[in-house]
C-alpha cells in the first residue's frame, strides 16, 4: 500500500510517498526563505509560497518514487494544527487530488506525524513509550500506550521551547534569527558565567514554561555594556542549558510516573545536539529514540506514514469537504 503525504502547516512545503512494504520511497521538502527578514513566520507570505511550491514537490515525490495515479492507494494531508492559510493549501490539494483519482484521503494531525516520525527509522521504538514533542509551536509530553492511544502528561503553559530559542536568537541579534543559531553560538559559551533558573522544576509537575527564561535573557543582555560575541555566546549557553536541563528533568519524571523506559524525541528542537547528548547521558542510549535530523523538522514523510497507519486502522475519508483545524489537539 502506497500513501502520498502532503505537509504545508507552517513554513515548509513537503510531499512524500510511503509504502508499507518498501518503506519511504521519496520525500521532498522546500523550506521557505521569505520570512527571514521579518524575524518570524508571516502567515500570508507562508500561504503564498505554499501555492507556488507544493504541486511541484508532489510531482517530484511521485516521479522519484516512480509512482503514478494507479500506484497510489490514498492521499494524506496535514489538516492541523498550524497556520490556517498554510494548512488550507495542502489540505485542499490533497483532497482534490484524491477526488480526481478516486482515492480515499486522510486528514492527519501534524503532532501525530511528529510523534510517529521515529517509526520511519530502522531502529523504530515499540510502544508503550513516552514522547517528548518539542518544536517552535509545541512542547508536550505524551504517554503513548499504543499508536493512536495518547495521554497528555504535560505541556507548555506559555512559549514552546523552540519559540523561546527563536525569540532569544532575535534578542541576541543572531544571524537569521533561528533557534539553531542560539545552539551554534552556545557551543562557544563560558559554561560558568551565568546560571539561569530551570522553570517549573521544583514541583512534580510535567508542564513547562519558557517565557520567563526569555525575559531573563533580555535583562542579562541589556545589563551588559557594549556586548560582544562572547557575551552572546555565554548567555546563549546558559539559556540553552536551562531549557535542556528542564526538558531532560521532566522527561525523567515522566518515565518514572508512567513506569515506562523508552523515550521518543520528536519535533524541530529534537535536532538540538546538546539535547540528544544529555538525554542519552541521563537515560542511556538504548532508551532514547529519535528520527534523523531531517525528520525532526516539518516533513511529509511523517505525514505519509501517519496517513498509512490511520488507513490501516480503517480510517479514511471519502467526503468532498475540507476542514482545516488550526488548533487541532492531539490529546
Amino acid at each position: 500500500m502506497k500513501v502520498l503525504g502532503i505537509e504545508t502547516s507552517c513554513d515548509e512545503s513537503a510531499a512524500a510517498i510511503y509504502c508499507d512494504k518498501d518503506g519511504l520511497l521519496s520525500h521532498k521538502v522546500y523550506s521557505q526563505t521569505v520570512h527571514s527578514e521579518h524575524g518570524g513566520v508571516v502567515p500570508e507570505l507562508a500561504a503564498r509560497d505554499h501555492i507556488r511550491k507544493t504541486l511541484g514537490l508532489i510531482e517530484d515525490a511521485l516521479s522519484e518514487a516512480k509512482c503514478s495515479k494507479d500506484d497510489v492507494d490514498a492521499i494524506a494531508y496535514t489538516a492541523g494544527p498550524g497556520l490556517a492559510g498554510a494548512l488550507l493549501v495542502g489540505s485542499m490539494m490533497g483532497k482534490t487530488i484524491a477526488y480526481a483519482w478516486n482515492k480515499p484521503s486522510i486528514a492527519v494531525n501534524h503532532m501525530e506525524g511528529h510523534l510517529l516520525a521515529p517509526m520511519l527509522e530502522d531502529s523504530a521504538p515499540k510502544p508503550p513509550f513516552v514522547a517528548l514533542i518539542v518544536s517552535g509551536g509545541h512542547t508536550m509530553l505524551v504517554d503513548v500506550q499504543q499508536i493512536g492511544e495518547y495521554r497528555l502528561l504535560g505541556e507548555t503553559v506559555d512559549d514552546a521551547a523552540g519559540e523561546a530559542f527563536d525569540k532569544v536568537a532575535r534578542l541576541l541579534n543572531l544571524g537569521k534569527y533561528t533557534g539553531s543559531e542560539v545552539a551554534k553560538i552556545a557551543e562557544l559559551g563560558d559554561k560558568k558565567r551565568f546560571k539561569f533558573p530551570r522553570p517549573m522544576t521544583k514541583t512534580r509537575n510535567l508542564d513547562f514554561s519558557f517565557s520567563g527564561l526569555k525575559t531573563k535573557v533580555l535583562y542579562e543582555y541589556q545589563s551588559i555594556e557594549n556586548p560582544v560575541e562572547q557575551d552572546k555566546a555565554d548567555i546563549a549557553w546558559a539559556f540553552q542549558e536551562a531549557v535542556i536541563e528542564t526538558l531532560v528533568k521532566k522527561c525523567k519524571l515522566a518515565l518514572q510516573d508512567t513506569r515506562l523506559n523508552a523515550l521518543v524525541l520528536a519535533g524541530g528542537v529534537g535536532a538540538n545536539k546538546y539535547l540528544r547528548q544529555r538525554l542519552a547521558e541521563e537515560l542511556g542510549d538504548n532508551s532514547v529514540f529519535y528520527p534523523r535530523i531531517e525528520f525532526c523538522t516539518d516533513n511529509a514523510a511523517m505525514i505519509a506514514y501517519a496517513g498509512w497507519w490511520n488507513l490501516s486502522q480503517g480510517r479514511k475519508d471519502l467526503s468532498l469537504a475540507v476542514k482545516v483545524k488550526p488548533r487541532w489537539k492531539l490529546v
Partner: peptide
C-alpha cells in the same frame, strides 16, 4: 489549490 490539483 483546486485547479492546480485537478489540472495535474
Amino acid at each position: 489549490s483546486v485547479v492546480q490539483s485537478l489540472g495535474f
